[in-house]
Design a protein around this nucleic acid. Structure first.
Lengths: 162, 162
DNA sequence: CGCCAACCCTCAGTACACAGATCATCTGGA
DNA sequence: TCCAGATGATCTGTGTACTGAGGGTTGGCG
């Protein structure tokens, strides 16, 4: 206590922060609310990242794993695990890209496609539940502000990296 | 394939959703931005949940594990792991509550306290970086909207549970 | 043509998150 | 007093997330 190595004035001590004023803390708690709402209103067996992957394959029926990961913002390692799980459950299948043997092309199975169709409308119900305390214009504003945050982050990591 | 058990009109197929219109997806991506900003601006060895726990102990020097978990919204199982890790690193210590042998009272060690003091100002820098694309009023609005979301979730789980 | 850097994927290790089962302790009612 | 239910903590299992290391493939450059 007596002689901390900090260069600030001795005796100065920061009080505890109020985490409710920290956007970061609120973002973490919001994701907990999301996961709870998802399990309650959408599915207990398909998670929201798994849905994001399957949904991307509905828009583009055959993509390589890396491209899907980029589109839905899932890490390459996480994608490998996630695809392995969905494949083991018969919801996804894959083939090696004949033009480029490094690439794994993934697509929905009929079973995966049918399950996705059941889930899509429920995701909208879930969203309505998640943001039930917000007016429609507030919900739009929340989306806009979150997009600004993630876009700024993307901009600083995509090109030039560091 | 021929006779799906869905009760909707045959031939109706949902198209892929635009995930950028889903607040849930944006919340997940925002948390990824948070974690990246945290690692860059605050600490690579103390995570934001770990900080939340230590910060709670700065406000209230000795609390039982469960109370801390409730205050910072961390699950009991996750708390057990997290406290074990911080204790192993000498940042936290604990004793059994003499009045109730089930409770584990945790507190910061001097080392944990010193580290926390270094970290607190950096969390503010990190927040500034995370929301750098937002004006001050937009940041306040983001906090307000996120609080509405998490408060609604708390209200539906705390009392009456179910 | 051959080699090497770039690229895609996988794996090991670490950490958060949560449900469900288990164990110990506490407490209130018979 | 003693037992049953509630409560605090742990453990197991699953899933998301990311880093760093490693292996196979490709493609461009000398």
């Amino acid at each position: 206590m007596t002689h901390a190595k900090a260069k600030s004035a001795p005796g100065h001590v920061y009080p505890a922060e109020d985490l409710n004023q920290h956007p970061g803390h609120l973002i973490r708690r919001a994701q907990q609310a999301l996961n709870a709402a998802w399990a309650e209103k959408v599915s207990k067996t398909i998670s929201s990242p798994q849905f994001a992957v399957m949904n991307a394959l509905l828009a583009d029926p055959e993509l390589d794993q890396r491209t899907v990961g980029e589109r839905v913002d899932i890490d390459r390692s996480t994608m490998a695990d996630l695809v392995a799980r969905l494949t083991a459950r018969g919801l996804l299948e894959w083939t090696r890209d004949s033009a480029d043997g490094r690439r794994k092309k993934i697509r929905l199975t009929p079973k995966g496609c049918a399950l996705l169709q059941e889930i899509i409308p429920r995701t909208r119900t879930m969203t309505g539940h998640l943001v039930r305390a917000l007016s429609p214009s507030e919900e739009a504003e929340l989306r806009r502000l979150l997009r600004l945050v993630v876009t700024a982050h993307d901009a600083s990591t995509s090109s030039t990296d560091q």
